[in-house]
Design a protein around this nucleic acid. Sequence first.
DNA 1: TGTGGCTGCCC
DNA 2: ATTCTGC
DNA 3: GCAGAATGGGCAGCCACA
Length: 820
Amino acid sequence: MFARTQDAGPSQPQEVKPVSAVTTTPKSKEERKPTLTAARAQPVDPIDFDVDALLFRPAAVDISRWPGGRLPYSVLVGVYVQVAGTRSRLAIVRVLTNFIHLLLARAPLDIPPALYLLSNHLRPAYIPCELGIGSMIINRVIKEVSGLQARDLKRLWSVHGDPGDVAYEAKVQMRTLVEPVPLVVHDVYKRVLKLADIRGSQSGKLKSDAVRKLMVQARGEEVRFLVRTLIGNLRIGAVRLTLLTALARAAALLEIPDSELDVLPIPAKGKKPMDPAREAAEEKCVAAVRLVRRVHVRHPNYGDLVRGLEAGLDGLEERVPLSVGIPISPMLGSITRSIDEVYARLGSLPFTAETKLDGQRLQMHVRRDGPQGEDDGGGRWVEGENGRAWVRLFSRHLEDMTDKYPDICARGLDLLSSVKGERKPFPSWASAPSVEVAALLEAESISSLIVDAEIVAIDKDSGAHRTFQELTNRARKDVRVEDIKVVVEVNAFDLMLVNDVPLLSSPFSLRRHLMRELLPPRPTPADPLLARWTHIEAIDSTDLKSPADLRAFFDKVVERKAEGLMVKLLESGRAPAAAEAEAEAEAEVEAEAEVIDVDVDDDEKDDGGKSRKKPLPATYEPDQRSMGWLKVKKDYLEGLGDSLDLVPVGAWWGNGRKAGWWSPILLAARNPESGALEAVCKCMSGFTDAFYKDLLARYPPDSDPTVCSTQPLGYVETGGLVPERWFLPREVWEIRGADITLSPVYPAAASYIGGERGLSLRFPRFIRIREDKGVEDATSAEEFAEMFRRQMAPAGGVAAAENGAEGGEEEADEVGDDVL
DNA sequence: TGTGGCTGCCC
DNA sequence: ATTCTGC
DNA sequence: GCAGAATGGGCAGCCACA
């Protein structure tokens, strides 16, 4: 069987058997297994990679038929098929590991293109690359290539809900007259990349032509995955981390001589035999995974990673280092639903609560001498009285935003010319800095830095914070400072590197102190269009008497229109055991934050009497949604977000996993004056699978046109949106959102707020059915408009006045000192 | 020249 | 962004 | 708890087309 799983039976050292063409039409769980079909169309057969990784021998694979020794696309596609055909993480990793192992050993040239194609990305995130191809172009090409009518395509679409599946189905039915030249991976990669370069008038046609040629050359399953690659949604159940895991394991296995890999096959059932060789190999793999992940989040570039691996795993981190100019995967916060939960998680460990502003995440790199290591052409030099500096800006998803914020780049230079003055010593309660880190506090000058921050739109004159929506009005490309319409403020909150010294492994207490001392808030620049530089407002747990004080701080920042808080651990420690959490939250300061080095001691066997559980690092953990950062947003908290009672009035067919179900669903509010139901938003989040099944039964697509129809059922205003099916308005659902937005498409409540635009919801999600409500009890347009007005009311209290009155130094000082 | 649709990216 | 699901 | 999938509102940028 092609897709057998390893645990299913004993395996012998292989002879890797080629398999013939495979097909998948993933539907139900049972049907997901790939099946064999007669080989014929495939010039080079896919390879069965689902074998014990320790028994896989790259040397045994026959690659004699690979054209010019290059990896055939059919082999890569065979991997997609095998991976997509199972849900078992272990099986997925196994397949990918063996595949990469083979490439490392036999086809190193093809590793970068194969990895990029597997990863669903064509380049590192920070290198600009937009294909400009979406479902529209794909549809057009499918139509041309298959000769199918729009109607048939639409039907295929609603059945499969995936452009790749549609293309596959459409093309299988074709008979090609001339056998096309088989695709090879490096060529496919190159041609797909080239699509990004096609621009200007006629580009649509040229792109279509290029895509059509690829599609004509693709056979069978190749079509499905080629299209998914073009759309940028591979859907094989393995994208980022799994691939990295496999790469690491493959690199580890490559370093183990075959003679040490004479391991016992895993038996079908029962206990695994004691097998020292197997355990040793597994240990090496696990260590490799840790290392490769660590390196990748500090230097997210597959090309560099693979080059670094050419010399082996040893010393990889030095060869592929964290560098100024290469973004670090940002650290993330985990969702926290109450103030109590904060204390339950952190207990008496020292933390700080930062205002979570509603803007855009920024990772700012500045270096006097230009980028560290190879220059990939990104970033820019800024010049001024203080000489020059090289600056590069990245977004939360590591896209390069240097060109969007020349006003921030200009401030990069100022940051390097920090005034040498008195610097406060590290706080006494913080853990001791290393000699190197301690020295930074005495630095005469700053030559490089990496800072984490939030960009917020501000009022040019008053400096008051503006909404996220206003920030999005900013131009994005080739912005010149003179043209800036949306002035911004940079709110720094972390320092990951300074003077070429990485600080990720220092606790936040130290990183923050260095940030505050070396990069203090600056006065408003002479040019009012330039970005302001300040620190995010925060309050430390040591200044709080009780959870109530934290709650008060939360209420205050929400009053000032912030999203909520980011609570961050200042010193590493151990999470309180669940049982103790409450007691601890109450008894509090009984313990002066015990500091434990998590790196040295991360086993917790001995939680004997004093029960602390998991290690809780206060280090900067790239790419982790760590417990060290807790995100407390107002819309997570019961009763604080905007909650509407809306009527489902229509729906579209779901895609992929949700094919065959209604998703998303169109929701409307009631306008008692006109009698219309006015569309508010689509919703697809918050529904369980069981709910979807139920919903399909309540609104069956083609059996009862009085409840589910191709025609509107009732008076519904949708602003031009046309769902696949209209529902009879009869249910009321509670829908929660983070904010109310002024919408260019939705008509809801437009008549109550001036007519032109209606209202919608940011981050809409389903909470529950309001069984107790009928359509006539749904939220009315007037109520909706009133909620919007309340939201738009000026930020309350003293804060607003402060913010409005002063623009510069004083405010900055105050914020910098944490005074509230 | 202006407008509308598509795409990619912020949240 | 949010949320659910399978491992 | 991790990893992945499906998809929200809304913006600027870009192209097609009138």
